[in-house]
């Protein structure tokens, strides 16, 4: 029974997981990340906490962000350690995530 932590289930690829939700991509990003601010950040909590995995560390210590598959949950700006590095608003009307089964 102790083996459950190393799940033997076939792992679902993260891209396949994200592909189950519908996203209507707006032409413009609704979240803007100030990459310079991120370079000095000691926690970079957004990388692990964002449920959509949209924050990716770059080799020069910055953050690469993409908005297309955003759940619009708000976790990133709340866990951000660099005040103001994330400018957060909602996507334009009709765009963004569309839940159908939740």
């Amino acid at each position: 029974m102790s083996s459950w932590t190393q799940s033997e289930l076939p792992a679902l690829a993260f891209e396949d997981r994200m592909a189950t939700a519908e996203f209507r991509v707006a032409p413009e990003a609704h979240i803007v990340v100030d990459g310079d601010g991120c370079r000095g950040c000691s926690t970079k909590a957004c990388i692990t906490a964002c449920p959509a995995g949209l924050f990716v560390p770059t080799s020069d210590g910055g953050i690469l962000f993409s908005y297309e598959q955003c759940f619009e949950c708000g976790t990133c700006y709340l866990v951000c350690n660099e005040g103001g590095a994330i400018t957060w608003r909602y996507p334009e009307g009709g765009a963004g995530v569309v839940y159908r089964r939740s």
Partner: peptide, 21 residues
């Protein structure tokens, strides 16, 4: 995958994953 949860959910096809605060 916990033995007390798996019997209820194992084998179900994932239809939608989502997140909310």
């Amino acid at each position: 995958a916990h033995p007390a949860i798996a019997p209820f959910v194992a084998g179900g096809e994932l239809l939608e994953y989502g997140a909310h605060l």
